[in-house]
């Protein structure tokens, strides 16, 4: 034993070199990372605290039950904008989810990637996801609000604009969830004589639902916070009534906030912050739901 220990002293010494220089380098590196993180987090907290402090005085029942008013800002609320957001985003989901999921199923399960038009569609979908949202507003303004469809500046026009906006995101999220289902599951299903459609409907979609739901909710939460395209298709009006249908004039939360911010009177300031706070809460709730869905139902293959 002793002999062996002595014999191995020299190589063992190589394991304990002077570590100081290396330690300094890694400490500096970790400190820089921490500093970057701190800057981002501090800024975020500053914004959140400012909003809470400035808006908390108007975080009352009036905020969600009253209509906006230029005459009595102290008791005004954003009730029409809440209803408008729910209506517009709900219809957006009804349009975008079936279209997006169906398109993704086609691209992922049926399209032959060697055909040029399938590749063209794929390239376009990816590019559409990067198109600035106001472009979709202009598109809908030109084709839906005005001729040929001539719907006017109504809630349905807003839904169409948002649906077009999030469609590429839904398609990409759905395709990724479908792709995550292992090939063995497809093979196993087809090998017992299931058709492609049965395989999609009974195996792939159920397995992909958590991913599709997560991606869709995140896309919809983007739609909730979107103002630019809606400004072009009619959400600008300072309305004081609750929208009552698809062809009603409407406004949504971000546009309402924008309108409040334009007002010059002092009493609008807390109202604006309170409305922002409400929007943030809605978005956090949506994103939280997405995270919970992903953690609870996501499958590891």
């Amino acid at each position: 034993m002793t002999a062996t220990d002595t014999a191995r002293t020299t190589p063992a010494r190589a394991l304990t070199p002077d570590r100081r220089r290396r330690d300094v380098a890694s400490t500096v590196f970790v400190s820089v990372l921490w500093a970057c993180l701190l800057v981002a987090a501090l800024f975020l907290f500053y914004v959140l605290i400012t909003i809470v402090v400035s808006g908390v005085s108007r975080l009352d029942a009036n905020l969600i039950t009253q209509a906006p008013s230029t005459i009595r800002p102290a008791t005004a609320g954003v009730q029409p904008a809440i209803v408008g957001t729910l209506l517009v985003v709900g219809v957006t989901a009804l349009i975008a989810l079936p279209l997006g999921i169906a398109a993704a199923i086609y691209l992922e399960e049926y399209a032959d990637p060697r055909r040029w038009f399938n590749r063209a569609i794929e390239l376009n979908v990816q590019n559409l996801a990067a198109v600035p949202s106001i472009i979709f507003g202009i598109l809908v303004l030109a084709f839906v609000v005005r001729a040929p469809l001539n719907f006017g500046a109504v809630a349905l026009s807003g839904s169409i604009a948002l649906a077009l906006l999030i469609l590429p995101v839904v398609i990409i999220a759905t395709r990724e969830s479908l792709r995550a289902v292992p090939r063995e599951i497809r093979d196993g299903s087809l090998a017992v004589g299931a058709t492609r459609w049965q395989t999609v409907w009974r195996q792939l979609l159920p397995a992909a639902v958590p991913g599709i739901a997560t991606g869709s909710i995140l896309a919809l939460s983007r739609a909730v916070g979107e103002a630019a395209p809606l400004i072009l298709v009619g959400a600008t009006t300072f309305i004081t009534f609750t929208p009552d249908g698809l062809f009603s004039r409407y406004t949504v939360m971000p546009v309402q906030i924008f309108n409040f911010a334009l007002q010059s009177r002092e009493a609008f300031i807390p109202l604006t912050y309170a409305a922002i706070l409400l929007l943030i809460v809605i978005l956090l709730a949506l994103n939280g739901t997405a995270i919970v869905l992903r953690n609870r139902f996501a499958r590891r293959w």
Partner: peptide, 17 residues
């Protein structure tokens, strides 16, 4: 589809649903 209903297959890696 009819072919696969008569000629079943078992794969390398167990692939239960």
């Amino acid at each position: 589809i009819e072919v696969r209903r008569r000629i079943g297959m078992v794969f390398q890696k167990p692939n239960p649903f």
